[in-house]
Computed example of a mutant assay.
Amino acid sequence: MSRLTAPEPEAIPDGAKGILDAIQKHFGFAPGMFNTLAANPAVLEIVATLQRSIAKLLDAKTRHTIALAISRTNGCDYCQALHTFVSSELGGMSSDDIELALNGSSTDPRRAAVARFVQRVAETRGQVGDADLAAIRGAGYTDSEILAIVTVTVVFLLTNYLNNVNKTVVDVPAPSPKAA
């Protein structure tokens, strides 16, 4: 059972209704995390704005890889379920790529480097070593892209923390089976 209370549908503050409608349209359902955040429309707006903003950073599969790696590193069951669904249904990632990302890797060497780097960012609370930076640079990432990687990571850390504090009940549908 979630520890924070989501407002009943008729009690959702006006400032949150439009945001929840847009989220429902995007995902095809309203994930419980967002329903809980609707208890504070300003928080819901901040999270939704950050998530829309990071869509401008990096390619989608790299963002999904970051989300999956960070969610597993932080032990956020809710985020792992949601990002597995999104990566599969909206992001075009295979179940193998999703499993690799959850474990800090990828079939793509650049994304594998990103997954390992963001795990180090989370594990060290941002105090990565010179070797960590050398590894991500060695995979071909520029300092500008590293800034984007860290920014995307922090946005997913935020939702991991919100859902871990809440112990949000997983209400995310399983991804549809795909032909191999």
Rank of each mutant, 00 (worst) to 15 (best):
N74T: 03
V121P: 02
P175N: 09
T151I: 14
N40V: 10
G32L: 09
S95N: 09
N166Y: 06
A67S: 08
M1A: 15
V154Q: 11
T153W: 00
P7C: 06
I66K: 01
D21A: 08
G18Q: 13
G104V: 02
V172P: 00
E8R: 15
V86Y: 02
G32V: 10
L4A: 01
A39K: 02
S144I: 05
A6R: 03
A113L: 07
T159V: 11
I23C: 02
S2D: 15
L44V: 11
E145D: 01
I149G: 01
A101M: 15
S94P: 01
H83Q: 11
G138V: 09
I54C: 08
L37E: 09
S106L: 04
Y141T: 00
T124Q: 04
T5M: 12
G104P: 00
I46G: 12
L147F: 11
E8C: 01
I66C: 08
E89F: 08
A55D: 14
V128A: 01
I12A: 03
F34L: 00
A69R: 03
K56V: 09
D21I: 02
S53I: 08
V121Y: 11
E99S: 00
G92D: 13
V150M: 11
N40W: 06
S53R: 05
P31A: 07
D21H: 01
L162H: 10
D96A: 04
M1I: 07
V128D: 07
I146D: 12
A60W: 05
E45W: 05
D77R: 12
T5I: 10
S53G: 07
L102T: 13
S88E: 12
A101R: 03
D14F: 01
A122C: 08
E10A: 00
Q127R: 15
G18L: 06
V152I: 08
S176K: 13
T107K: 05
S176G: 06
D96W: 15
I98C: 03
L58K: 04
T168A: 06
A48V: 13
K25W: 04
N35W: 12
V155K: 06
S144N: 10
Q127A: 12
M1S: 04
V169D: 12
H64V: 11
G140T: 08
I98L: 03
N163H: 12
S106V: 11
G15Y: 15
K178H: 05
P31I: 14
Q51H: 09
L82I: 13
D21T: 10
K25D: 07
Y78W: 03
V43S: 06
K25Y: 10
E123H: 14
K25I: 11
I54T: 04
D171Q: 08
A148E: 14
T142C: 03
D130V: 06
I98T: 11
N166Q: 07
G15S: 04
A67N: 10
S144A: 10
G104A: 00
N160V: 06
R63F: 01
S53W: 14
K178M: 14
P41V: 05
S2R: 14
T65M: 04
D96L: 04
V170S: 05
I12C: 07
